[in-house]
Write a protein that binds this DNA or RNA. Structure first.
Lengths: 199, 199, 199, 199
DNA sequence: GATGAATGAGTATTCATTCAT
DNA sequence: TATGAATGAATACTCATTCAT
């Protein structure tokens, strides 16, 4: 019955965004279940009541926060890919993409932990995750075609390459281990990705 | 004041195990935060009070449950690896390992989702995850040495291979997508793993 | 500080009336405590803010609504009574009055339920109820005198008669029971009322 | 999911009763919507939590409270009726019944107001009211038969008589008016009830 | 006068944990 | 040891009322 308003006025849009940002920030720091709506409102600098004019319930805030998180994480990687226009030096360029990915994962490491956890807590959030991944892989395929790489099973190979970069980024951020030679991990990953697309 | 007893008597050990099993079962089905201790006690067939004689608090049950889960997931993979004793047909054997991994992930898919989420909710749980991964990679290295594979950067390569199999298993269980040729994913993964160790 | 204005302009009077009507309508349907001021404003076609320029608070709307309700219920009964000018056929005329009462109670049954409940929730509302009853009984007395009925204890007898018709009307509207012969209830009530005034 | 326990142990039954009594008391004083569960618990001398082990929700407390109220109101009237065993002096005995009814209504006047209001707020509560009335009228019929009164339309007549006594009791309790001769109201009511059954 | 966005106090209900028995 | 009744702190959400525009 209490209708959810989609804000039109600039100030309202800003307010809604502040709430999303506050949600993303606190969810990332303490987890969804350990965050209260009162806290979100406080950090966003609004009253608790107004939250429920822009969002159906607490989970609705989470959904918007996750969306924003994915944009924040994947868009820069996609942009980085788009900078590459020809296949002059695959190794170096792939290394650059990996660097961006690692940097972004590192910058969002706590948030990322939480977002992954959240995507496992709720089907709606999980769906957002899947869709987001689809989109990034689609972009990878387009990128590869744009640099004249044309092989069989493009999608499947993009999947594997994407997973390798993701795994590697996680390795860097979450498993920092003294016994591991991380430079080698990168160079070996590049070598393998090359082995995928350039036989 | 309320001391946590480490059960000695057989019946007590069984009781503690029942609680862990009940916890693992319900956490896996509904998530940690949506599970009440009363529910765990009921499923375990004990009183709510007794739970707090064997476990410090609710999270303590989770820790034991996660440990049990990892044993349940990784031990069979390790066993499968140990069956392989020589490098007669690497491709076929690796495919068999992948099959086991996928099967186990599938069998535990809901639980696995939850356990991953949980490992992100709490540093203690996360630590368990890391340690568990270390152990499995150690076993992989031992296995590789046992079949006379001896290359540089053994650990790093084992890491990459392990991640590839994990990613692939997740792909199978969580992202089932009609447009993807899963057989190809497997064969390509085997080919790449071979490319890692057998140059 | 916020002064309650008594509207003077025609448009303002209409606006105030719209709010009262909306209040009466929704209070009747869902009850005072389940009705929000926002809802009343929406149904009245005004903003939530303006409500507080015409009414002190939510209860103030209720008071006006109850007043309007009583007018709506009792005025027609009084009018009906006034149609009767002589005591030609007491039975038939009393039956006609009862019919009007039942019809009105039926037409307002849901509203009536709520109004009774409300008159018990608040002394101010209860007072309105009492006064309203006084007025109708006064009219009954006047009516009886106008048809040359002149007995002792006129007021007390009018009370009893009024209560009998009220009880009967409620019986019809709220207790519809298959085992009860309602025609007999009416004729017996008429007979008893006659026994009150015409010995 | 959180199961409602039906208390078996004596202490638990007492506790449940204390909550019902507290509910009845405060609902009667301040109304259902102005009463908080915390308040009920406090008055009952229990914690807020325990309330929800014995009652599904707040309304569930109300239902039990209303039941108890009806028992408290109607049982004594029924008992009074049962004391009368023969038709020696109808007038005097009926007056005695009326006195008891008035006394009970007076003793419960505030509670009664609220209970009536409540029976209009919720269909379940209303149903309890109807059933309770059915029962009391059934008892009146039995009583009348037991003193060898045997007329046509017994039920309908009992209805009318019951309503007259109820109306009268309300008149006494809620409308105390200086201009009304209450003794006459009683004697006239007795006269009319006699006119119903003893023609 | 009018709007409707914003406020924030208020509340039913849950659940980890304790404790009398 | 074991029970399960009892505790009470914690929290999402609502809504009468205000106020900047």
């Amino acid at each position: 019955m209490p209708e959810i308003r989609e804000p039109i006025k600039q100030t309202s849009i800003e307010k809604k965004n502040k709430i999303i940002d506050a949600g993303l920030k606190i969810f990332s720091e303490k987890g969804y279940y350990n965050t209260t709506t009162a806290e979100i409102a406080k950090v966003a600098g609004v009253s608790t009541g107004i939250v429920y004019q822009y969002f159906k319930d607490k989970k609705d805030i989470l959904i918007y926060a996750v969306k924003k998180y994915y944009d924040r994480l994947f868009n820069p990687i996609a942009s980085e890919l788009e900078k590459i226009t020809k296949l002059s030096d695959f190794d170096e360029q792939m290394k650059s993409v990996i660097d961006v990915s690692i940097k972004l994962h590192r910058a969002n490491s706590v948030a990322h932990e939480e977002m992954i956890a959240m995507s496992h807590l709720d089907p709606d959030i999980h769906q957002l995750f899947i869709e987001s991944e689809h989109r990034i892989i689609e972009r990878i395929v387009q990128f590869l075609e744009s640099i004249d790489i044309d092989v069989d099973h493009m999608h499947e190979k993009a999947h594997i390459a994407y997973n390798m970069v993701e795994s590697l980024s996680h390795e860097f951020v979450y498993h920092q281990d003294d016994d591991v030679d991380y430079d080698f991990l990168v160079s070996e990953t590049v070598r393998l990705i090359k082995a995928i697309f350039v036989n």
